[in-house]
Computed example of a mutant assay.
Amino acid sequence: VFWALPAAHRDALFPKLELLAEKLPLRGAAAVALLVLVVEVAIYSLLVWFVGKFVLDAIETGRQMQVGTGFWPLWPVVIFILLAFVLMIVEMLRLIWRDARRLVTGQADD
């Protein structure tokens, strides 16, 4: 699920809060999209911070999870969650760059 988040966001399958922006002129739509993306980056940055702290703690303490009757280390699983959230931030930064260029130039470049 976590690996699908960046791909779904890139392919516009991720729910977005930009429905109003479709009715605005290009610069207005870019401004709304930029604002929404900045808020999303802030939220995902907090997630990365807290998941990163959890991953470091899991590695340092040797945290384990039970799989069947055995116990496996937890850090290989949670590190992928951290990487997926980082990929989300990278994708959002790309979209911020795109919308900032739209806002400045007033032209769609897709």
Rank of each mutant, 00 (worst) to 15 (best):
V1S: 05
V1E: 01
F2M: 06
F2C: 04
F2E: 08
W3N: 03
W3G: 03
W3E: 07
A4W: 07
L5I: 11
A8N: 13
D11V: 07
D11F: 13
A12S: 10
F14E: 15
F14N: 11
P15Q: 00
P15R: 00
K16V: 04
K16S: 14
E18V: 06
L19A: 10
L20C: 07
A21N: 02
P25L: 03
P25M: 04
P25F: 04
P25T: 03
L26G: 01
R27I: 12
G28A: 05
A29W: 01
A29R: 13
A30E: 04
A30C: 11
V32E: 03
A33H: 09
A33R: 13
L34N: 10
L35N: 08
V36P: 06
L37M: 07
V38Q: 11
V39A: 06
V41H: 02
V41N: 05
I43R: 08
I43W: 11
I43Y: 11
S45A: 13
S45P: 00
V48E: 12
V48Y: 02
W49D: 01
W49T: 09
V51D: 04
V51T: 13
K53H: 07
F54I: 07
V55F: 12
V55N: 01
L56G: 15
D57F: 12
I59R: 11
I59C: 06
I59D: 00
E60Y: 13
T61W: 09
G62F: 06
R63T: 09
R63S: 11
Q64M: 13
Q64S: 14
Q66H: 05
V67M: 01
G68K: 02
G68Y: 09
G68V: 05
T69P: 04
F71W: 14
W72T: 14
W72Q: 15
P73T: 10
P73Q: 15
L74E: 06
W75Q: 06
P76D: 04
V77S: 13
V78L: 14
V78Q: 05
V78H: 02
I79F: 14
F80R: 08
I81F: 11
L82P: 00
L83C: 04
A84C: 06
F85L: 15
F85N: 00
V86G: 07
V86H: 01
L87W: 02
M88D: 11
I89T: 01
I89H: 02
V90L: 14
E91N: 09
M92G: 08
L93M: 15
I96C: 07
I96W: 04
I96D: 04
W97E: 11
D99V: 03
R101L: 08
L103M: 08
G106L: 06
G106Q: 04
A108K: 13
A108T: 11
D109R: 05
